[in-house]
Simulated scan of single mutants.
Amino acid sequence: MDGNNTTTISEITQPLFTRTTWSIITFLITLMIVITAGGNLLVIIAFATQRSLRNFSDYLILNLAVSDFIIGSFDSSIYAPYVLTGTWHIGRAPCLLWLVFDYVTPAASTYNICLISLDRYIQIAHPFWARSHRTDTMLFVFLLIPWLIPALLYMPLILLWEPISGKINMPPGQCFVPFFDNMPVLLVGVVFEFFIPFLIVGILNVLVYVSVRKRSRGLQVLTATNSISVQPGASTEREPSMSVYVISNTDPISHQQIQTNGRLRTFPSRRRFANNNKDQKAATSLFIIVFVFGICWMPYEIAALIRSVCFDCVGDVEFEITFWLLWINSTINPFLYPFLHSRYRRAFNKLTRCHRNSVGPYPIA
């Protein structure tokens, strides 16, 4: 890299703010770090202490919470002094370690969202397949993939780029990836860590919505048809009028059977309607998670691509805002679980009650 580029990169991390603005930003960054780490730690504690949160899907949410917790407790907390002072103070080896975590953990968070979306689609669209194939082996693969893919992609690039190229791109007191100005590498990274995951979760979100919609219409049509068929006075002389409710022994959850006028008719059970309503809520929650993911990630990915081609086209302050917006996704995620999933609301309520009981003057039985 020539001297002009080195000077330009050094300017990225020079103090960008006045003293008052610096104080405000320091407070906001600290608040974000505390909320991100604390919120995701609460999810991890809920999983560890509440046995109701131990199914297949909850392990995937745990994996997402772990990646988001690392972002809040390590990635952003290490980066904050650097961006506020303009100088990397803790040496080159910690810089490379931080860069690996900084690239692997957000990508792992992204892939976790993909697998959560895939798991939700399988449960809704193919429930019988899910019951027989969601094994421990499949769970292990789902937990490993989000970490393995970004690690194989970014670790060699970050750790081996300078030894293989023979050029030292990073000046003293600075910390950034050595391929910061390599458009092909950045483009591959954007495709693998944002565009492909966003496309996957978008398609799965649409398929989940279509599946739930189709099921809802099927239940409505079945209910309407059979309600008309068994109305009083519908009997004929050849078929004596008789109405007896019989619960099916083969599948009591999905439907109930009614024998009327000598005919056996199938009705959706209350349990089936409840499951369908649950799937509708799951589809809504999945859409919200995907929407938040897109809003938080897209500005940074676009800004990074533009900067690799035209460095001065995106200002330093604007670029930093998009960078922190990416991390805010990890701040928002743990708050989506209790609001969108009743099981997590109940688990968090139990944790809150246990905390009040442990610190209160009188224990509550």
Score class of each variant (00 low, 15 high):
His89Leu: 11
Thr36Ala: 05
Ser73His: 02
Thr7Tyr: 12
Pro268Ser: 01
Ile258Asn: 05
Cys175Gly: 05
Pro240Phe: 02
Lys214Glu: 11
Ser76Ala: 13
Ala80Tyr: 04
Ile288Cys: 03
Ser254Ile: 01
Leu139Pro: 10
Glu301Ala: 04
Asn261Gln: 08
Trp324Gly: 02
Asp102Cys: 09
Ile289His: 13
Asn329Lys: 10
Asp136Tyr: 03
Leu62His: 01
Ile44Leu: 15
Gly166His: 02
Gly39Gln: 06
Ile253Thr: 11
Glu301Val: 07
Ser216Phe: 06
Val100Phe: 09
Phe17Arg: 13
Ile228Met: 11
Asp316Ala: 10
Ser132His: 13
Ala130Cys: 10
Thr20Lys: 13
Asn5Lys: 13
Arg51Thr: 13
Thr87Arg: 14
Ser342Asn: 13
Pro197Phe: 04
Glu301Asn: 13
Phe179Asn: 05
Ala304Lys: 15
Asn55Gly: 11
Val100Glu: 12
Glu318Thr: 14
Asn249Ala: 13
Ser73Pro: 01
Ser227Ala: 14
Ile25Asn: 08
Leu157Pro: 00
Ala365Ser: 12
Thr352Lys: 11
Ile302His: 02
Leu336Tyr: 05
Pro178Cys: 04
Ser229Pro: 00
Thr20Met: 11
Ile196Leu: 14
Thr331Val: 08
Thr18Trp: 09
Ile332Ser: 03
Asn112Phe: 04
Ser76Glu: 10
Leu41His: 07
Arg356Ile: 05
Asn182Lys: 06
Phe339Met: 12
Thr36Phe: 01
Ser165Val: 00
Glu239Val: 04
Asp136Met: 05
Gly38Ala: 01
Phe291Asn: 06
Met183Ala: 08
Ile288Met: 11
Asp251Cys: 07
Ser227Leu: 15
Gln256Trp: 03
Arg217Gly: 00
Asn357Ile: 07
Asn276Asp: 09
Ala274Cys: 04
Phe293Arg: 03
Trp88Asn: 05
Thr266Ile: 15
Phe287Gln: 09
Leu160Arg: 08
Trp297Asp: 07
Pro268Ile: 01
Ile158Val: 14
Ile29Phe: 14
Asp75Asn: 15
Phe74Tyr: 15
Leu286Gln: 14
Pro184Ala: 03
Val188His: 01
Val185Asp: 05
Pro299Ala: 04
Val314Gly: 04
Asp251Met: 10
Asp58Trp: 02
Asn205Val: 00
Glu239Ala: 09
Thr85Tyr: 02
Pro163Asn: 12
Ser216Gly: 03
Ala234Thr: 14
Ile328Asp: 10
Val317Thr: 14
Pro184Gly: 08
Leu336Pro: 06
Cys354Phe: 06
Ser330Leu: 05
Arg120Val: 07
Pro240Glu: 06
Val309Thr: 10
Trp161Thr: 08
Asp58Thr: 02
Ala304Leu: 07
Pro334Glu: 06
Phe348Asn: 03
Cys175His: 02
Asp251Ser: 13
Tyr300Cys: 10
Phe311Gly: 00
Leu152Pro: 07
Glu11Gln: 12
Asn112Ile: 02
